[in-house]
Design a protein around this nucleic acid. Structure first.
Lengths: 114, 114
DNA sequence: CACTTTATGCAACGAAAGGTTGCACATCGC
DNA sequence: GCGATGTGCAACCTTTCGTTGCATAAAGTG
């Protein structure tokens, strides 16, 4: 049984830098390429490209505001991504019954059908 | 605060092909580069490289058995990865309190198949 | 208004990742 | 011994992630 996931969506959050960007955007409410580059150790241009990727899959939306372009997380879209992360995690968990003990952090019982 | 995540571990499961490989290995118990290549639409060599990546982060272990090299998922390690997926998902969720309902709705539309 | 600062955007380029093909080599079954 | 099967190594291509450099637009300030 494999879970149906949107590879583009997953790949978008699969990148460490993009994950940090989402963290920052969620923490601050919104941000620009420049503001994010000040908080994450990559250049503004790299951030800008990642924002384009995130925008393309709909995880963020940018709006021009004067001379700056301010980005904000699309929470519904991110919730969908989170749901997929959980779905895959649950699917794998259900295949590893015997190690449930080891994964003490994961207490959510999953009744995913096989 | 951002969640402490092992980027290598996350990146390992961030690749669609590697996720499918893990799915197959879990379903079949074990597998070889050749057997996996028959189930996933990429060449055996590509599979071999992914197995090397997964082995490096400890998600799978390979053992020579005659002329073939058989790989098996390290369940403790995978459980750790799953825990991190959940941790990040939870962190993001906690930042998006107000859309919890949407997340639930999306969850229902996330299908699973064989 | 002119000038400087600040925020973007575009382009070229390099390194690494994911994928392919081709071939050499080891091993199993007969 | 010999063919079929399973690996491993190497070269090569494309995309992705990151860089630097430069041009441009919008504020802010004298």
């Amino acid at each position: 049984m494999s879970v149906l996931v949107d590879d583009d969506l997953w790949s978008a959050v699969g990148d460490p830098t993009r994950r940090r960007m989402i963290d920052r955007l969620l923490a601050d409410g919104s941000g620009t390429a420049t503001s994010l580059a000040e908080q994450i150790p990559v250049t503004r241009q790299a951030i800008a490209k990642h924002l384009a990727v995130l925008d393309r899959v709909g995880l963020v939306h940018g709006a021009a505001a004067g001379r700056e372009r301010r980005y904000r997380v699309d929470e519904a879209r991110l919730a969908r991504a989170v749901a997929q992360l959980n779905a895959v995690g649950d699917a794998w968990d259900s295949r590893m019954e015997r190690i449930k003990r080891i994964a003490e952090t994961i207490q959510q019982t999953t009744e995913t059908k096989e």
